[in-house]
């Protein structure tokens, strides 16, 4: 009996419910985002002029297609505010991902070298904060970083600074928040590849006379690249669209695209521009998203 085929037919039926659900609540909504991004803003509820009304028949639909407007996208390209927001999002995401890799790698490496029994404990310890609320973890840092917060009081007590340093509403605070929130996402895939690595390879390199840094750089690091890729994508993609962390920890003089989208939507009630911003964000992230899906599929299906 062929092992691959068991359940094949009933299992196909299992796909129906999730398939319908995801098409209805994940795929179709993007159509609405696209449609509204091509609409005009209106002072109404909901605040946009629908471009086409499917009940009006074919000629009306044709007329509506002729009236589609790219104005919102033109606005996004011509207004510095949006261009800067996209650039800032990308810069922040690249910097934060680099920091995460730099901080996460030694931790994952340390975990992979623990005795087997302790590895499981370390893994649970890294996962637990991931389960703790995101918002709460950011709030915890506001406690520490505020004007008369713990960090300033420690620094003052140690006479490292003579007056309280402004931490909140700075990029430093935002980077601390991002690194803190995303660290488990970087550590876990790195640890997964490092733990699977054959220690004999490193030992062989050392036996052949390679100093430790060379063993790491020529053997360990190249072999861990799949984990590096997964960790980088797992952090980079959501950070580009991050809203909560920059909103609560960074200053308000330069915004990331997630914040601009939020502002257009909730404050300015300009749904068409918010939708256009979402479409552009999606296009920017398309390549990393596809890459991530391929990695994920390979990891889950070639076990």
């Amino acid at each position: 009996m062929s092992g691959r085929r068991i359940f094949a037919r009933p299992a196909r039926f299992a796909a129906i419910a999730p398939y319908v659900w995801m098409v209805l609540f994940f795929l179709v909504p993007f159509g609405f985002v696209l449609k509204i991004s091509l609409s005009q803003t209106a002072i109404a509820q909901p605040p946009y002029e629908p471009v086409f009304d499917l009940t009006a028949g074919w000629t009306a639909i044709q007329a509506a297609f002729a009236a589609l407007s790219l104005d919102n996208f033109k606005l996004l390209v011509s207004d510095d505010l949006y261009v800067f927001a996209y650039l800032r999002s990308l810069t922040v995401a690249v910097t934060a991902t680099a920091l995460l890799l730099l901080i996460g790698y030694p931790i994952a490496y340390g975990m992979a070298r623990l005795p087997k029994r302790w590895q499981a404990v370390a893994m649970v310890l890294v996962i637990v904060p991931f389960w703790t609320s995101f918002l709460i973890r950011i709030y915890a840092w506001i406690n520490i970083l505020q004007h008369d917060g713990l960090l300033n009081r420690i620094l003052l007590a140690l006479h490292l600074v003579s007056r309280p340093v402004v931490w909140l509403s700075t990029d430093t605070a935002m980077y601390i928040g991002i690194v803190y929130s995303y660290l488990p996402f970087m550590i876990l895939p790195l640890y997964a590849t490092l733990a699977k690595m054959e220690p004999a390879l490193e030992e062989a390199a050392a036996d052949l006379g390679a100093p430790p840094w060379q063993v790491f750089w020529l053997v360990t690091f190249p072999l861990s690249l799949p984990g590096v890729g997964a960790g980088v994508l797992l952090c980079f993609i959501p950070i580009v669209g991050e809203f909560v962390i920059p909103d609560l920890l960074a200053g308000s003089n330069s915004l990331m695209i997630g914040q601009t989208l939020w502002l257009e939507f909730f404050t300015n009630k300009d749904w068409p521009v918010a939708s256009a911003a979402a479409i552009v964000l999606l296009v920017v992230l398309l390549a990393p998203l596809l890459l991530y899906e391929r990695l994920q599929r390979r990891q889950l299906e070639e076990q």
Partner: peptide, 10 residues
């Protein structure tokens, strides 16, 4: 990995 602002808005 999809940014939540996109999922929420759509």
């Amino acid at each position: 990995v999809m940014p939540e602002v996109i999922t929420g808005l759509s």
